[in-house]
């Protein structure tokens, strides 16, 4: 059946890649202590991110996607299992990891330029180098005309660009994005997807994108991981087989439909489980 759909389905077992993984999770679980019970939020999860890969995670709401991102970002520690980035265990936020959140994280008291330069200034970088990097990132994200504007004067999409530019100037080798376009309208989302692809090609960073939009995952990624309901584990990995040089126009190809259908086929079962649990 999967052959008919065209998208390649990769075996579930953790792939023993020939090159060492850029980021690696093994048997990672996360349990939250609630006042009267415990909530098994995630895992066990095994994941290998190849260097330079664009990987997306889709899954039903509340399946632990964001927890997975927090663990890779070093914002929370796994209960069990190991998390590594560039061969070293993740303890605290690792150097070389950048995160873009769903919520607008631009600082309203700084103009666009100062927002973008914020992290570099705190790191005490040479001002000439800061200027060079900020000029580049501001230009790259199409913010040149708004460099002196304040976030309150910008649309939601533009503010998210500011946040992406602010992450970009740090030259991260792994970029984690937690539903970065979730609050934007469909057209803006498609265009922002293009920007993200352009950024990915330009920086050759590894990208992990968390999204609830199947089309976004299908269009942007090299590989999509589908997660189950809580406790979230990967139930499928779908290779998209896109060329590196792609953009949002792939949404009109039959292959895009195949990938989306494949993702939905898996996800639908999980989404139904949640609905019936809700009814019961």
């Amino acid at each position: 059946m999967s052959a008919a759909l065209g998208a390649k389905v990769v075996p579930l077992a953790p792939q023993t890649a020939t090159a060492p993984a850029h980021a690696r999770l093994r048997g990672v679980t996360r349990v939250f202590d609630l006042p009267k019970s415990t909530l098994h939020a995630l895992g066990p999860v095994d994941l290998d991110l190849a260097k330079g890969e664009f990987f997306s995670v889709v899954g039903p709401s509340g399946c632990g996607k964001s927890t997975l991102l927090d663990i890779l970002a070093g914002l929370s520690a796994p209960q069990s299992g190991t998390a590594e980035f560039e061969g070293k265990p993740i303890q605290g936020v690792p150097d070389g990891v950048g995160v873009v959140f769903q919520e607008d994280a631009s600082f309203p008291w700084l103009n666009v330029r100062d927002n973008v330069a914020f992290g570099l200034r705190r790191a005490g970088m040479d001002p000439a180098e800061i200027n060079r990097r900020v000029d580049y990132a501001v230009g790259f994200m199409g913010l040149k005309d708004f460099a002196a504007s304040y976030p309150a004067q910008l649309s939601g999409g533009m503010r998210q660009r500011v946040c992406i530019a602010r992450t970009l100037v740090m030259q991260p080798r792994l970029i984690l994005l937690d539903e970065p376009f979730g609050a934007l309208d469909q057209q803006t989302r498609l265009l922002m997807g293009d920007e993200l692809l352009r950024l990915w090609r330009e920086t050759s960073a590894t990208i992990l994108l968390i999204t609830h939009a199947l089309d976004e995952a299908a269009m942007l990624s090299d590989r999509v991981g589908v997660m189950s309901t809580r406790p979230g584990t990967f139930i499928d990995f779908v290779e998209t087989g896109w060329e590196r040089d792609r953009d949002s126009r792939v949404v009109s190809t039959p292959h895009f439909g195949d990938i989306t259908a494949r993702l939905w086929e898996k996800l639908r079962i999980e989404a139904l489980k949640i609905m019936s649990a809700g009814k019961g």
Binding site: A73, L75, G92, V93, D95, V97, G98, V99, F101, E103, D104, A105, F107, F118, G119, R122, A123, M170
Partner: peptide, 18 residues
């Protein structure tokens, strides 16, 4: 205060005083 500001300062690896 928006929690995302605190998370952002963590991700930027700021010291507590920064």
């Amino acid at each position: 205060m928006k929690p995302v500001y605190r998370r952002t300062s963590q991700v930027m690896r700021l010291s507590p005083s920064q």
